[in-house]
Design a protein around this nucleic acid. Structure first.
Lengths: 198, 198
DNA sequence: CGAGTTCTGGCCTGGCCGGTCAAGAACCCG
DNA sequence: CGGGTTCTTGACCGGCCAGGCCAGAACTCG
């Protein structure tokens, strides 16, 4: 019996995600959110709550989507080690460098907010842990497939790989060229995963 | 003949640095800066210019101090490879984890602002380049000292080490425990620098 | 077609935003 | 001790901030 919504919740979340991603949390005003979503103030607050609530929702959905994508890639990739390579090379795979400059919403948000917003820090831990878990599985598979030394601690390698990728993302944000970025990725890969068949 | 300043410029810059470091750029108001510095508005604007100007000055001095410290450590450390180890372990060396949570002012600022403030991005490139240069020198020295494979590309290793450290800093900001952080550092070090004598 | 429920747009508020400026104080030099 | 210069204080500006609120619209179901 109620009046139905005139907007699609998912596309609003996506539009708002773009805005937070580009400007950061504090630099994005609620008016910005209204502009990009096309909503009125009442609708936004009614559907999502405060600015902080919208942001947490955006961040959670972003992380969930990333983790899901990573899992799907792991299932579809020919060898476990390929996922790891893809993961580390990802940030430098855009030839224009635009997406490298943009960085990762989670990494940006953590750097900006983790100290003052405990829930952002907790969400970051949750998501990075999920990522490390998928990477660990990929590396264990790579060990079974003979691409990684079976005696190594897969979880430790996974964490080192995650750190390297985060570092590459951070460097990419400086506007450093994608070729230089790619060479960092290759250097890290070559040393973190010294497989026999490179 | 002029009236002399009543404040010490350096200690004002330091107090303001703490504030920007803890809260980020956008979340820090000019009133915050006045409060922590004890200055009146006119004095602050007269001495430093706009909020943006103060911030850039703080950031530059922070980076310069870090690069200078790294150089000094390179000069005083027994072996080149020790500097690299120190550098990667740094973020996890505070047992309480407080400084790990705080992260690095440059990394935080780059993540928050690089896209919307080109001068921040440029300053980040400059500083990371300086860091990579010192690391390269340390690794070249380590090659001469027999701690690193002399056939390797020192600059490439340096960049991979820098990326790993940046990643560890990023992970530290999530509030992840220092012991886990230290194990990431050791995993990265053990694989990036497989010296014969570990 | 009326009652009940939710959604929508935007007005309103109190306060904080970054930044300017004027008036007077503190100092040095002549 | 007076003139010149810079520094300090704090009032003030227009505008934007996040969020509250409300009047009315859109819909479903009885």
């Amino acid at each position: 019996m109620p009046r139905p919504r005139e907007f699609d919740e998912d596309s609003v979340v996506e539009a708002i995600r773009q805005e937070f991603w580009d400007k950061g949390y504090a630099a994005t005003s609620v008016d910005d959110l209204l502009r990009v979503s096309g909503l009125g103030k009442g609708s936004l607050y009614g559907a999502f709550g405060s600015k902080h609530d919208v942001f947490m929702r955006v961040l959670r959905e972003y992380n969930d989507a990333n983790d899901r994508m990573l899992r799907e890639r792991l299932a579809s990739v020919p060898r476990g080690i390929d996922l790891v390579r893809e993961f580390v090379r990802g940030p430098s795979s855009d030839s224009t460098g635009a997406s490298a400059r943009r960085g990762c919403l989670l990494a940006n948000s953590t750097a900006e907010l983790a100290l003052s917003m405990p829930d952002v820090a907790a969400e970051a831990r949750r998501s990075y842990d999920a990522t490390a878990t998928v990477l660990t599985e990929a590396i264990e598979r790579a060990q079974r497939e003979g691409d990684v030394d079976p005696g190594a601690d897969a979880r430790q390698i996974a964490r080192a790989v995650l750190a390297a990728q985060l570092g590459i993302v951070a460097l990419g944000r400086t506007g450093m060229g994608v070729d230089a970025l790619a060479s960092v990725a290759e250097a890290a890969l070559g040393r973190l995963l010294p497989s026999q068949e490179r």
